[in-house]
């Protein structure tokens, strides 16, 4: 008696519930099917709250259709981290996108650049933003590269020799609570490959 998701074991009989109500002559407005009804269709999607490092599972309900608005966010009961709960920040997370049904004007959707000494921001493309960041990292790293350190003996005194250091102390890295374990691993790996030694994470709960 193998039972897969698709294949019920042919138990399709029914009790006297809804199937038999009309047959028995009961009348009610719902049965006539003539009431005007406003129907909303929506869909739940699994998500992860991005506000802190707990990483609570969320269920986000969107109206279906191309521009379906978020109609509800709740804790995912199937998530072993939060068992269906959310704190007040997580419960309000849809406000990142919509406030009172209108798009949140404070939400950044494009990189912004403020030139040195300027008081205003201007929109730039992702390519431009990434190039700028890469250039700054390269310049800072090159200008502050520590290639070698003095060698020390067991008591901590200089021996007069040198040992490779291969690091920069001019860049610091602050990880994000919005990163998963895997994302955090890649982030620190990338930073170490640049010779960054000040690597921190903001997993404060």
């Amino acid at each position: 008696m193998e039972l897969t998701r698709r294949d019920f074991i042919k138990l399709s009989g029914a009790g006297l519930g809804t199937a038999a109500i009309a047959k028995l002559g009961f009348t009610m407005p719902a049965l006539a099917g003539t009431e005007p009804l406003r129907i909303t269709k929506a869909k739940e999607t699994n998500g992860v709250c991005s506000f802190c490092a707990v990483g609570c599972g969320t269920l986000v309900s969107n109206e279906t259709g191309e521009h379906g608005q978020i109609v509800n966010v709740e804790g995912n009961p199937d998530c072993a981290i939060n068992f269906g709960t959310l704190c007040s920040k997580g419960a309000a997370i849809s406000q990142k996108t919509y406030i009172d049904g209108k798009p949140n004007k404070e939400r950044l959707t494009k990189p912004l650049y403020r030139a040195p000494n300027s008081s205003s921001w201007k929109e730039i493309s992702w390519d431009e933003a990434i190039d700028k960041i890469a250039n700054r990292i390269k310049e800072t790293r090159d200008a502050n590269w520590i290639a070698e350190d003095d060698a020390l003996d067991a008591a901590g005194n200089p021996t007069g020799g040198k040992v490779p250091a291969l690091r920069t102390e001019a860049i610091g890295a602050l990880g994000s609570a919005e990163l998963s374990n895997e994302g955090s691993y890649l982030y620190q790996k990338f930073m170490r490959s640049l010779g960054v030694v000040y690597i921190e994470h903001h997993a404060r709960l």
């Binding site: 998701r5 698709r6 009804l37 406003r38 129907i39 909303t40 269709k41 929506a42 739940e44 279906t64």
Partner: peptide, 17 residues
């Protein structure tokens, strides 16, 4: 829970009013 497409986000819901 009723078909193998479940993983693909095929579950939706509707409500009245």
């Amino acid at each position: 829970p009723f078909c193998d497409e479940g993983e693909q986000g095929s579950l939706e819901y509707l409500y009245v009013g």
